[in-house]
């Protein structure tokens, strides 16, 4: 089954890395197919940035996202630019510390930036919290796969911090889903 995920936020949040990590998890550790793309250009240097990943059990044919099944939105501007056109059946994870609008579809609120700052002391891992939440809420890739892909992708010396962030994401999503 084909699953399209769109990530959006502002430059510097690690929006592109998030998509790359999910794609990597799917391909390298879950034995699936994936294609990752992104919007290049001025957007990549501040402003709303967008990246996407498509995961499928079969080879991915059309490489571009047309109607995402899952959104991960980490800024208000990103919501306005890439998140307003959601279809009813989609799921949207928002960083509730930064996005105040809510979509017409099912929405999962994750205070990622707040948690990153308050319980982990580093804003920068908010994207990893969102990734943890994404995996816990949707199961697009397995928990083992995302963990390995995160470890492959983060700078040396920050592995522990990032794994903590990922687990924080699992927890926050579980709380929303079952709580």
């Amino acid at each position: 089954m084909r699953t399209e995920i769109r990530f959006s936020g502002f430059g510097g949040q690690g929006i592109i890395l998030a998509a790359v990590i999910v794609g990597r998890a799917a391909v390298m550790y879950d034995n699936k197919y994936a294609v990752q793309t992104q919007v290049y250009g001025p957007e990549a240097r501040g402003g709303a940035s967008m990246s996407a990943v498509i995961i499928d059990d079969e080879p991915v044919l059309f490489p571009k996202v047309t109607s995402p099944d899952i959104y991960v939105i980490m800024s208000q501007e990103g919501f306005e630019k890439y998140g307003v056109s959601v279809s009813g059946g989609a799921i949207m994870l928002v960083d509730s510390s930064l996005v105040h609008s809510r979509p017409s579809c099912r929405c999962i609120e994750i205070p990622a930036t707040k948690e990153a700052r308050e319980s982990l002391g580093r804003d920068i891992v908010a994207n990893i919290i969102m990734l943890g939440a994404l995996v816990a809420a949707t199961g697009v890739v397995s928990r083992e796969a995302i963990e390995k892909a995160i470890l492959d992708s983060v700078p040396r010396g920050t592995e522990e911090l990032n794994l903590k962030a990922m687990k924080k994401g699992f927890e926050l999503a579980e709380k929303v889903m079952h709580g």
């Binding site: 790359v20 794609g23 391909v27 197919y33 994936a34 294609v35 990752q36 793309t37 992104q38 290049y40 991915v60 490489p63 571009k64």
Partner: peptide, 10 residues
Amino acid sequence: DEIIGHMREK
């Protein structure tokens, strides 16, 4: 082209 050059896949 830019799409094939910039996309990531296996």
